[in-house]
Each structure stands twice: as C-alpha cells, then as structure tokens.
Amino acid sequence: MKFQNILVAKNNNLAQVTINRPKKLNALNKATIEELNVAFEALEDDENIKVIILTGSEEKAFVAGADISEFAHFSVNEGGGLARQGQEMLFNFIENLSTPVIAAINGFALGGGLELAMSCHFRIASNNAKMGLPEVSLGVIPGYGGTQRLPQLVGKGKAMELIMTAGMITADDALSCGLVNHLTTQEELMPLAEKIASKIMRNSSVAISAAIKAVNANFVDGINGFDVEIEAFGNCFGTEDFKEGTTAFLEKRKPSFPGN
C-alpha cells in the first residue's frame, strides 16, 4: 500500500512510523488512522522488526488532535461508531501489539494525538512538547481511550483535572506526573528513542511480547493479571530464547536470541 499520510522507514530491526501531515499539524483523520493500522499490522508481521518508534513530521506537532471537520455534524450513533472503530482499529491495536512501540513526542500532542501516544507502550518527549485533552472545550469527551489510559498513567485526580480544565501541560509537567518517561531536546529526541530501542532489542523478543501481554492484562476487567503472568512465565520455559538466555548466562557470554 502506498501511504499518503504517513512515512515508514526500516533500519535493520528498528522501524520508524512518522505521521506526515505537517500542514494540518499531523491531525488524525480517517485516512491516517486506516494507514496507521495497515502499517502497524505489517510491522507486527515482520519478524525482523523488534521495536517501532512512532513520531510526527517536522518540529511543531506529534499529532495536534483529530480532524474535527470530519465529525462535526455526526449523529449520536455515528459518534459512538467513530470512537469504537478508532479504538479497535488503532489505539487498542497498538497497545496490544507484541512489538514494543515507543512514542517520540516532538511537539503538540493534543486530543487524539495524546491518546495515540498513550496507546504506545511508553513515551519520550522533546522539551518543546505540550500535551492535553481539550475535548470538553468542544462539548465532547476523549473518545479514543483518553479517559481510561490517562488515569492509569498519572492517577485519577490528575487525569480528572487535565480532562475537566481542557488545559495543556508542558513537557516538564508531563515528566513529573509520569505521562512521559524521558525528556530531551528536539535534536536528541530520535537519538534517545533509538538508544532505548537498541537496549530493548538486545533482549528476548519472545519474552518482551509475553511481558506486554501480562502487564496489559492488569487493566482488563475480568482478567486476573497474576494468572496471565504465571501462564506466560511458564510458557517461556518452552522457548528457544529461554534456552539461549540461560545457557549464555551460565557460560558468561552475551545471548544471541533466535526469537522463538
């Protein structure tokens, strides 16, 4: 598929997905969501890709929200369908990928943009970044998982304040409340993301996939995360990665994980 709104680049085991609508501050529209879904599906199926970095083009915005013009006249049913389809196609999909996804927030991450960043496995940001969920200022609420993921990351009280005030916070504030893991300059954002990715890629992709599933299980109603962890832990003992990892440890050498 030839993409119109995103760029996908691969370098050995690392992939970078860039939302490329700079004139619209990389706002999410239906076409971009569909393209991101296709891109992430393909990268998930690519056995060579061990880590994905998601970012926005140029220096102003990661994603400055959804394209409001697309849904300003929606009905109740259309609005509900928009949220459900978006969550299933992209936001929940990214969260549950077995391949780690790092959000490199290079500017404004507002509304659907912040929700997209929060669906990634963790986030780093440049010091010019600003984040927020301004939906209530438009008479609507976050619909792409924002009311669920923000409290998980920053706590209920802080999330309530950010959602109800519709305000933006600085990158420093985002770091202090745990919304992002690391803060750096615009110039060093991608090098830092790649450095973290290289550390991840040294480890067992099979074990990382299992860990993602176990961590996410804690936030699913009706699922006992401890049971998921126990089962995943046991399954690791049947993998070639476990054999290689333990053998390398006992032989005092660096492991070379086969990825199965």
Rank of each mutant, 00 (worst) to 15 (best):
E95V: 08
D46E: 13
E244W: 00
Q87W: 04
E95Q: 15
G56I: 06
M160N: 15
L162C: 15
I19Y: 06
S69C: 03
E47S: 15
I94L: 03
V76G: 05
D67E: 04
I230Y: 05
K50Y: 03
Q148E: 08
T32S: 05
L54D: 08
K156V: 07
E44T: 11
P100W: 12
E95Y: 10
E58F: 05
L175T: 03
N5V: 01
N26M: 04
K130Y: 09
D241T: 00
A66V: 05
H182S: 12
T99R: 09
T165D: 14
C177G: 06
S69L: 06
A27E: 09
L192S: 09
M89C: 05
G65D: 04
L162I: 15
E194C: 09
G81W: 14
I200W: 11
A64L: 02
D221Y: 07
Q186I: 13
A193N: 07
M89K: 12
A39R: 07
N29Y: 00
P142Y: 09
S126L: 02
V76P: 06
A210R: 14
A66T: 04
L133Q: 12
T184E: 01
N12E: 03
T32H: 01
L97W: 10
S137F: 12
F40E: 13
T165R: 08
E240P: 02
R84S: 09
P255I: 04
Q85W: 12
Q16A: 08
E95G: 12
A9T: 15
F249M: 01
L179G: 01
I169Y: 10
A129M: 04
Q148R: 15
T32E: 03
N235H: 10
A109L: 00
T55S: 07
K156H: 05
N5S: 03
Q16S: 11
K50F: 06
I53D: 07
S69T: 02
A207I: 01
H182A: 14
